[in-house]
Simulated scan of single mutants.
Amino acid sequence: MKLIIPLDENQGPISKLCDHFGSAPFFGVADTENGAFDIIENGNSEHDHGHCTPADAFTGMGINAVICNGIGARAAARLQETGIDIYMAGLARTVEDALARFSTGTLNKVGPKQACEGHDCH
C-alpha cells in the first residue's frame, strides 16, 4: 500500500508531520509492501484556503491512502473522489509514529464531514 504523509520538514522517517495537509511543504511517500520511503516537495503549499488540489499531484503515483493530522473538507472530498482513503494520525508527531499507528490498525478512516473547517482546527 502506498501512503502520503504531509510533512513540515525533509528529515526522512523522523520528519515532523504538518498539522494541515494542504499547507505541508513536503509529503512523505511510504510503501508498506517494500518499506520504501521518499519525500517530495508540495508544489501547491501556498494556496488560498479551499483551493488545495493534492489529488492532482498524486495522480499516477498509485497512492492508496493519506495519513494526516488535519485536512480540509474540499481536499478530503477530492482525494476520496480519486479513490484515496484518509486516516487521521491521532496527532502523531513524526513519520515513524504515524506509520507505526497505521500498521497496528488504530487510525480512524474519515470522510469529508470529519475534515477541518479551517486552519485553526488543531
Rank of each mutant, 00 (worst) to 15 (best):
L7V: 07
I4Y: 04
D120N: 10
F27S: 05
G50Y: 03
T32W: 00
C68E: 00
N10I: 04
V95E: 05
N34F: 03
I86R: 02
D8W: 00
Q114L: 10
G35K: 15
E41C: 11
I67M: 03
T94W: 01
T53F: 14
L3M: 10
I63T: 02
H20G: 13
A76R: 04
A98L: 00
E9A: 13
I86W: 06
G105A: 04
T82E: 15
A89P: 06
D31C: 12
I40Y: 03
G43P: 15
G90L: 08
A57T: 11
Q80N: 09
G12D: 05
N69W: 01
F37V: 06
N34S: 08
P6L: 14
L7I: 05
A73E: 02
G118D: 13
I14M: 13
F102Q: 07
F27A: 08
K113P: 07
H47T: 11
D38N: 11
D8I: 13
E41T: 14
N108C: 14
A115L: 05
I67A: 06
P54Q: 07
N44W: 01
L17V: 05
D48L: 09
S15Q: 05
D56P: 04
I14G: 13
L91D: 12
G83K: 00
I84W: 06
E81G: 09
H49M: 11
V110Y: 00
M61N: 12
P6A: 08
A98Q: 03
K109M: 15
D8G: 12
S45Q: 00
G90A: 08
N44M: 07
L17H: 09
G72L: 03
D85I: 03
A36W: 01
L91H: 15
V110F: 02
D48Y: 03
N108H: 08
